[in-house]
Simulated scan of single mutants.
Amino acid sequence: MTVEDRDLTRAIVAYLGKGRSPFPRTDEDAVRALAVGEDAAVLLTRGRAVTDEMMSIKIDWATKTLSEGGREAQEVLVARRPELGQDALEALYWMFTYKWR
């Protein structure tokens, strides 16, 4: 069983503005405010890498709705990054579907 990386999960949620913004955005200051156990620059780099990875997942849009494609991308990311918590995965799904709409 993989242990959730809570710092990274919280950083992704904060970075994307989930729960604070009506649409996904990048908020580096929110991540810096969270960086207690880890260097802010490292946490930002890790969070950006995950968001970039999510956006690089290829979906066959000819056979998927926006929601289905977003969930498929989320499943791919879960397999690649099992340390992500559900809050981060939902924030990433939100970002992915917003950008592909």
Rank of each mutant, 00 (worst) to 15 (best):
W94T: 00
R80S: 09
I12C: 00
A62V: 15
W94K: 05
R81I: 08
R32S: 09
T65L: 10
L89S: 04
G69F: 07
E53S: 10
D5M: 14
R25A: 12
G37K: 13
E68Y: 07
Y93T: 10
A73G: 05
M95H: 04
L84I: 03
G37Y: 11
I59M: 09
P82K: 08
K64I: 09
F96H: 01
K58Q: 14
M95G: 01
A79Q: 04
A79H: 02
S21C: 06
A88D: 01
P24K: 07
V42A: 12
E90W: 10
P22L: 12
A35K: 07
K18T: 11
L16N: 01
W100C: 11
S67M: 15
E75V: 11
M54W: 02
E68W: 07
L89Q: 02
G17H: 06
L92E: 00
A41H: 03
R25G: 09
K64W: 11
M55S: 05
V50C: 01
Q86S: 13
S67K: 15
I12V: 03
S21K: 09
P82I: 01
T51A: 11
R71D: 11
E53T: 12
R48I: 08
T97M: 01
A73R: 13
T51F: 01
T45M: 08
D60W: 02
L16W: 03
I59V: 15
A79E: 01
A49H: 05
D7V: 06
P82T: 05
W94L: 04
P22A: 11
K99C: 08
G47N: 04
E28F: 14
L16F: 02
R80G: 04
D87K: 07
V78H: 00
R80E: 09
S21Q: 10
D27Y: 13
A11D: 00
G17S: 10
G37Q: 12
D7S: 09
E4L: 14
E72L: 08
M1H: 13
V31I: 11
E53P: 05
D60T: 13
E38K: 15
A91L: 02
E53Y: 03
E75N: 15
L84D: 01
P24N: 00
R71W: 13
V13A: 01
T45H: 07
R80V: 04
K18W: 10
R81V: 07
K18F: 10
E83K: 09
S67H: 14
D5N: 15
E75Y: 13
A30W: 14
T26M: 07
T51H: 05
E90L: 12
E53I: 10
T26I: 14
L43N: 08
M95C: 08
L92S: 07
A41Q: 09
G85N: 04
T51D: 07
L89C: 05
T63H: 12
V36Q: 15
R48K: 14
D60K: 06
E83G: 03
R25F: 03
A41M: 04
L8Y: 03
E90R: 12
D7L: 04
A62M: 15
G17R: 07
T65D: 10
T9F: 02
F23N: 08
L84H: 00
L8D: 01
D7I: 04
V42D: 10
A33H: 06
P82Y: 00
V31S: 03
